[in-house]
Each structure stands twice: as C-alpha cells, then as structure tokens.
Simulated scan of single mutants.
Amino acid sequence: MGVTDNGEYLFWLTDPAGVPEEWTIAANEARGPRWYAYGGGLADFLTAVLSGRETVPLFPDSFLTQGAFFTPTTPAPTPAPVDTAPQPPAGRTADANDIRTWARAHGYDVPGRARIPVAILEAWEKASSG
C-alpha cells in the first residue's frame, strides 16, 4: 500500500479478513529480508512515524531529515503497445535506468529510485523479446 523513496515497501496484513480496522501494518526492508510490524491502523502508523513517536528500524537514519511529503497516486494512463523496448547490447542486461526511461515513454508510472514494479519489468521483457 506504500513505498518509501528508499525502497521499503509497506503492506497491510489483512487478517482478520473484512475487518480493516484490525489489520496490521508491515514494512519490508529495502533490498533486504527484514520485516517490521506495527499493530495499529494506517493513520496511527503514519502519525506515530512522522511525528517521531515510533521508529521503524528498517528505515534509514535520514528518514525524516527532509521532512514528510506525500506524492498522491493518479490513475496510470493506458500503456502504449510494448513493441519498442530498447535492446541492450549482446551479452549485457539492461540497466534499470534504461527500463525506467522506456517505461515512462510508454505511459507507466515508475519510481525514480525504488524497485521497479514487477508488472513494468514483465512488460519490458515482453517488449524486448519480441
């Protein structure tokens, strides 16, 4: 349900099903296996973390040094046909920046520094192989 600019992903643990006010917030370490769980709702979690009352050990020490800001999500445009992906030179895999450039040119909303979403990678691979 969210991601930091450093690449930590936030999830809802949807148990019990159908009772969202009892769901737990879970955070996954960027590029790592560690997890953190917060036993409260999203508004409580954001208020606690952004006010400094709660520290998420997975977040970098610099997490709040630039202040809190939010980037609202907008519906993604319908991606253009995926038949024009850049081809990396023989024997070389594509650079993440090349994939991001291709994705933006084809209407995908892709983060600047975090993990590239699987759906975008799959679309790029499909376009690259055809």
Rank of each mutant, 00 (worst) to 15 (best):
G40M: 01
E21P: 13
P86D: 01
P111A: 04
V110P: 01
T24G: 05
G7M: 10
A96S: 08
S129A: 12
A96F: 05
L46A: 14
G130Q: 15
D95R: 02
E21S: 12
G40N: 09
A37Q: 14
I116V: 14
P111M: 00
L13Q: 15
F11L: 05
T47Q: 11
Y108W: 12
K126S: 04
A26Q: 12
A43K: 15
T14Y: 13
E54G: 06
P111Q: 03
P16R: 10
T84N: 14
I25S: 02
A43V: 13
L42W: 14
A37D: 05
T47K: 10
D98K: 00
S128C: 11
F45L: 07
E8H: 03
T65V: 11
A123P: 05
A127D: 02
G107T: 07
T101S: 05
E54S: 01
Q87K: 13
P16S: 02
L46H: 02
D5I: 04
T74K: 12
N28H: 15
N97I: 03
S62G: 06
P79V: 07
I116D: 07
F63R: 09
N97T: 10
T4H: 05
L121W: 08
V82N: 15
P79M: 11
E22A: 11
P117C: 09
N97D: 09
N97E: 06
W23S: 04
S129L: 02
T101V: 12
L64F: 11
P88S: 02
P77W: 06
W23G: 04
P72F: 04
H106L: 09
W102H: 08
L50Y: 06
D83E: 15
P57M: 07
A96Q: 07
D95V: 03
S129Y: 04
W124N: 04
R100F: 01
E21G: 14
L46Y: 03
L50V: 13
G2M: 00
V118L: 14
A105W: 02
D5T: 03
A114Q: 03
S51C: 10
G2R: 03
T74W: 06
L10K: 00
A114V: 03
A103S: 12
T73R: 06
A127H: 08
A90E: 15
Y36M: 01
G130F: 09
T24W: 08
M1N: 06
P79F: 07
A30L: 11
I120S: 00
L121C: 01
T78R: 10
G32I: 05
I25H: 09
R113V: 05
G107C: 02
A76L: 05
L58S: 11
R113E: 03
G41R: 12
T14P: 11
P86M: 00
D83C: 05
A96N: 02
T47S: 14
F63H: 05
T74G: 10
P60H: 08
V19L: 08
A17E: 13
P75T: 06
D98G: 01
P111W: 04
D98Y: 00
P75C: 02
V56L: 07
N97Q: 13
A43E: 14
A68D: 08
